[in-house]
Amino acid sequence: MTQMPQSLHGLRVLVVDDEADIREFITVVLESHGMSVKAVASAAAAFEVLKPFQPDVLVCDIRMPGGSGYDLIRQIRDLEAKEGGHLPATAITAYQDEDWEESRKAGFEAHLHKFAQPIEWVETITQLAGQTSV
C-alpha cells in the first residue's frame, strides 16, 4: 500500500456531483487530508467556478442531469486549447458499466468508482496533481 503524505495542504480540488451526500462525503475525505475543496452540483456550476477557484484537480461525476461529466471535461479541454493550461481530471461514477476508454477519450486521465476505498480517491488525486508519496 502506498503511504500518503500527512498533509496535502494547498492542493485545490473541484468536486462535481449532483448527489449532495456524495459531494459532502468526498469533501470530508479530501479535507481530512488537508486539501481545499470546492464542491458543486452541476457541470454548469463547475464551469462557473473554474477560473475563480483555479483547482489543481477535477473530480467529476459522469452522469448528471443538465450536462454530463463528459460534456464538462470537453468544455474544459476546449478552453485549455484556446487559453493554455491543463487541469488534471478524474471521472467518478457509481456505475460498474461506465467505460474507462470513453472517459479517457473525453479528456479524463483517471476513472474512479464512488464505492472504492476513499484512500484510492486520495491516491489518484495526489498522483494527478503531481504530488509524490512519502
Rank of each mutant, 00 (worst) to 15 (best):
K105S: 14
S7C: 10
F25R: 12
G130F: 09
G66R: 00
T126Q: 12
V37F: 04
K38V: 10
Q54Y: 06
M35L: 04
I119Q: 15
K114H: 06
L50C: 02
V13K: 03
A129P: 08
A91T: 03
E48R: 04
A94Y: 02
A106N: 10
K82N: 11
S133V: 12
C60D: 02
A91N: 01
E98L: 06
G130K: 09
W121S: 00
A20Y: 11
S133A: 14
F115L: 10
L112V: 09
V16Q: 08
G107T: 02
S68I: 04
Q75E: 11
I22M: 06
A45F: 03
D18V: 10
L30K: 04
H111Q: 12
I119S: 13
E83K: 13
L112W: 06
S133W: 05
Q6W: 02
I26A: 15
R12W: 11
D71W: 01
H9P: 00
T124H: 03
I73P: 02
G34A: 08
S68K: 01
D99E: 12
S103F: 00
W121N: 00
F47P: 00
S133P: 11
I62V: 13
S32G: 13
F108G: 10
A129K: 09
L72H: 04
H111V: 05
D61M: 04
G67I: 03
L79E: 13
R104D: 11
V40G: 05
L11G: 09
F115A: 08
E98V: 05
A20N: 05
S36Y: 07
T90D: 07
V15H: 00
L30Q: 02
H113I: 07
T93Q: 04
L8K: 07
Q3T: 15
A106T: 08
D97N: 12
L30D: 05
T132C: 04
A45N: 04
G69T: 09
V37C: 08
M64D: 08
Y70A: 05
S7V: 09
A110V: 00
D71N: 09
L14F: 07
M1A: 15
L72G: 02
H9C: 10
D78N: 13
K82G: 10
A110C: 08
Q3I: 15
L14W: 04
M1V: 14
V49E: 11
R77A: 08
T132R: 14
L128D: 02
F53V: 03
F53A: 02
E120A: 14
H9R: 14
M35V: 06
Q117P: 05
I119M: 13
T132G: 11
I76G: 04
E24L: 11
W121E: 00
T90L: 09
D71E: 14
